[in-house]
Amino acid sequence: MTVPTWITLSRLLGVPLLLYGLHEPTPEARWFCVAIFLIAAGTDWLDGYLARKLNQVTDLGKFLDPLVDKLLVLAPLLSLIELGQVPAWGVFLILGRELAIAGWRVNPAMTGGTITGANIWGKLKTVSQILAIALLIAPLPAIWSTPSLIAFWVAVGLTWVSGAIYLWPQQSQSVS
């Protein structure tokens, strides 16, 4: 296994820490969770950079990276539902898109047997999700409630836009 793949797998360590810290969060626990989340999210950039720089891009890495990203994003979002900060149906929209794209990516009939990496819209989606989740986890003053929710809904919108853009050229290729 390559160094970038190990870094991808290390990102999983943040998931139980986030779930534990957000179970009954104090302001200190929330700041700890923001730090853990941002460090874990930062490794997403690092593993991709190293994979390209060291010429270690692998199908395993292309498969694991988005899967781990989904777990890292969905874990705090599920906690935020429980805390009453985001509506479940908004998180369901993100989950539905993520499952659809994951299923599409691993289906050889749809992809021609190759696993494709994320496009620029997928990267924008990921950045918007990271920003929204960090804002929602942080114990910010009440004046930040509306901007945090706006960031969440922007992330939901970009999640769907990136999914549609990802599927559209794939759909036309599989029909031909």
Results as ranks from 00 to 15, higher is better:
67 L>H: 06
158 L>G: 02
100 A>I: 12
91 V>I: 11
40 A>D: 15
20 Y>P: 10
160 W>K: 01
73 V>S: 01
97 R>N: 08
3 V>Y: 12
102 A>I: 14
151 A>Y: 03
74 L>F: 08
139 P>V: 11
25 P>S: 05
147 P>K: 07
14 G>N: 14
170 Q>S: 08
58 T>A: 09
96 G>D: 09
92 F>V: 14
150 I>T: 06
160 W>I: 14
164 A>W: 11
63 F>V: 10
22 L>V: 01
56 Q>S: 08
94 I>P: 04
156 V>F: 01
159 T>G: 01
72 L>T: 04
168 W>N: 02
90 G>Y: 06
7 I>T: 04
99 L>G: 13
174 S>R: 10
113 G>P: 13
74 L>V: 04
137 I>R: 05
12 L>W: 07
43 T>D: 10
58 T>G: 00
97 R>W: 00
133 I>F: 02
33 C>K: 05
102 A>Y: 11
157 G>F: 11
101 I>T: 03
63 F>N: 06
31 W>V: 08
108 P>Y: 02
57 V>C: 13
131 L>I: 15
27 P>W: 00
89 W>T: 13
41 A>Q: 07
39 I>D: 06
169 P>E: 05
148 S>N: 07
57 V>Q: 03
140 L>N: 02
120 I>T: 15
137 I>A: 12
120 I>H: 15
150 I>K: 12
161 V>I: 15
17 L>D: 05
38 L>S: 14
33 C>N: 09
104 W>D: 02
82 E>V: 12
162 S>A: 05
104 W>T: 14
75 A>F: 06
34 V>A: 08
91 V>K: 12
166 Y>H: 00
75 A>R: 03
30 R>S: 02
27 P>K: 04
106 V>A: 10
95 L>G: 02
154 V>T: 07
162 S>K: 03
81 I>L: 05
4 P>M: 08
85 Q>L: 14
69 D>C: 10
122 G>L: 14
95 L>R: 03
134 A>V: 01
62 K>W: 05
109 A>C: 05
98 E>D: 04
68 V>A: 15
72 L>E: 14
44 D>H: 14
77 L>I: 09
22 L>F: 01
171 Q>L: 15
96 G>F: 00
1 M>Y: 09
92 F>D: 09
36 I>H: 11
64 L>E: 00
95 L>E: 00
68 V>H: 03
164 A>E: 08
93 L>F: 09
73 V>I: 15
26 T>A: 10
103 G>I: 09
147 P>L: 12
146 T>S: 13
144 W>G: 10
86 V>A: 10
161 V>A: 03
153 W>Q: 05
131 L>Q: 03
156 V>Y: 02
